[in-house]
Write a protein that binds this DNA or RNA. Structure first.
Lengths: 361, 361
DNA sequence: GACAGGTTAGGACACGTGTCCGCTATTGTC
DNA sequence: GACAATAGCGGACACGTGTCCTAACCTGTC
């Protein structure tokens, strides 16, 4: 025969009413204890606390919310959990908001799913919505308009140029000004672009920064840079993409002496491509990355890159959110620009002057 | 004088009652449309749908839940968002559950916060709770008991040995059997351990696997392995930790010819440490990592490692969760073991036989 | 033992929603 | 134009909670 069910004689406790019956008090009394109202005997308070420990009873968060007793919550849309900088921002932002008693709802959104995610956040009556990463601009603008229409503050992190959007983003233009000046200062005058092509605003900003720095040296984008992005697909990972681009660049008549990559992975891939063809970095050519991820310090040569200043970015984001939550919307969108930090390492060095580039045998 | 407020004449719509007034229908009629009940004229349905597009109205998710119309939700406790394998599992699990109409609540838990996070999940009446990463075993066991007491299924991913817990974890023992046999097959007989010390079950499992493989070759852990973990703190990052350990190993009388690291970062750090001292990897010594992260392919030499088979792990996790959610608890905990995959790359090669190790000048 | 003051009981309402039900208004058919 | 079928209306209740209110209870004091 089956063994007797132990400790399961009582019915499950699903409400304060059930719980009050268990304690032997009125539901309203229990509720007053839970909400710390005055005029209660210590003995009663203790009795309720003890029963809570025994049963592990928790009030229904949904009913609580319905009564307006909600703690604020933040909806976070993140483009992907596979890009380390985005995850870092997400993690730090969640931590910063949590200490301010704001919980975070995290959703990874694919391009088609944005609308339903925002609807879900609206349905959950979040206090604000944050977008981390890069999204379809028109779509994003629509979602932001929808949020504003409902009086819900928003914040776009990383993506600039969305009309009417509160934005916190790295000054990518300035980042490229500094990077280009750094390379110019090392004597480089011809630049290979790795993954730096296309229409996204973030790339246009960076090219514009390059153009500005080049102009200061009497050079132009057209005359001094070369892009071979069209020769290879980016499928198969950024590492492979960078490696393939490097090979193609070595087949060009005048091989550039400095290479500027969209991100660190592509830069590392390119370095591998060059090394496999018998070239040395930085002796034969310089290569720079972007984002200053951990891998920059792990590869040989260590990689010159641009630090996104993630901590400062998220701090600014948290400040804006706190200021907006619970306050009337203002007419002009808040836009904060984060200053980048150039981190020079081994992969960029003085340009070759006369020695001809050794090509692979 | 202030400009007239545009488009804000109507009061905000906060409930189906407000919304029904806006549409010009009865609240119950609107509700029937929203829930797809029969007996409605197409014209009415269209009118409601159009009004929803105009206003962006969404029903209050909390009131919905209160009525029992909830979609299931999963509470995910993750140790940290800064360890790539954990984030990968999190991302894939969320995706797998989402297609099954289960939403995910993600919380990063610090050691002291575990209890309050679980209480919060209980309060939100989640359908199940998943733990990803490594936690305090006693604490975790207590939380699992609390969940079981409330009839809520749980699943522990990665951490083995928690009594009574449903578990999905890599067979770390077998992983080390294979890694050790691989190195033995290359002629190595003395091993340096990098970060592989301490009491956690995951480390003990791995050492036990090493011991088994060594025994097959007539060797023992005591006679053939060396650990210098006690000489350096792990603060300052795993890369630095590995580098420092490498330096210390080079000062030892009989330097091991093969090094086995706790993870890929430590292995890469150690390779740097060896290279900086003038040693070559793998010619002078072999180094292996663990986790098969992206960096394994980015460093030179590329790093031999163990793949965690994350996709298979998460698939097993999702299967268990789906089976448990909404079903009566079973007596015996479900335990699934995932088979690791050894990935050999350039960093491990045949052991030196006679050539003396070149020490740094 | 009576009385005042402090505590608790329990009824009521509200929050926003789904659903049931009886009733009315509209529509369609011959 | 009469009738039946159909569609929408609006009241009611429930979900679990906080809060207010009044009545009843307990406790301590003289």
């Amino acid at each position: 025969m089956p063994p007797p069910t132990p400790h399961r004689t009582a019915k499950p406790i699903r409400s304060t009413a059930d719980f009050a019956r268990y304690v032997g008090l009125a539901r309203t009394t229990v509720s007053r204890v839970l909400n710390g109202q005055p005029g209660l005997k210590q003995k009663t308070i203790d009795k309720v606390r003890r029963a809570m420990d025994e049963t592990g009873f928790t009030v229904n968060a949904y009913a609580l919310h319905l009564k307006g007793k909600r703690a604020g919550s933040l909806g976070i849309c993140v483009e992907s959990l596979f890009t380390p900088p985005a995850v870092a921002k997400l993690a730090i932002l969640q931590r910063k908001m949590r200490v301010r008693d704001v919980s975070s709802l995290i959703e990874v959104v694919d391009p088609e799913g944005m609308k339903s995610v925002i609807r879900s956040f609206l349905s959950l009556r979040v206090s604000a919505v944050v977008f981390i990463g890069h999204f379809n601009e028109a779509d994003l603008a629509l979602r932001i308009e929808e949020l504003s229409h409902h009086g819900i503050p928003h914040l776009v992190v990383d993506q600039v140029g969305v009309p009417g959007a509160n934005t916190v983003a790295l000054d990518r233009r300035k980042a490229m000004v500094e990077m280009t000046r750094h390379l110019l200062g090392l004597g480089h005058v011809s630049f290979g672009l790795l993954g730096l092509s296309g229409t996204p605003r973030s790339i246009q900003d960076r090219l514009s920064g390059m153009a500005e720095a080049l102009a200061g040296a009497g050079l132009t984008l057209e005359g001094s840079t070369l892009s071979l992005d069209h020769l290879h697909p980016r499928t198969g990972g950024d590492l492979e993409f960078g490696r393939a681009l490097a090979r193609s660049f070595l087949a060009v008549k005048r091989v550039p002496t400095a290479f500027v990559a969209l991100n660190d992975e592509i830069a590392v891939g390119a370095i591998h491509g060059f090394q496999e063809a018998g070239c040395r970095v930085p002796e034969d050519m310089s290569v720079s990355g972007f984002n200053n991820q951990d891998i920059c310090k792990m590869v040989k040569p260590t990689l010159t890159s641009v630090d996104q200043q993630i901590e400062a970015t998220v701090e600014a984001a948290a400040e804006i959110l706190i200021a907006k939550i619970g306050h009337a919307p203002v007419r002009h969108p808040a836009v904060r620009t984060i200053q980048p930090l150039l981190v020079t390492r081994e992969s960029t060095a003085r340009a070759r002057t006369s020695v001809a580039l050794r090509l692979r045998g």
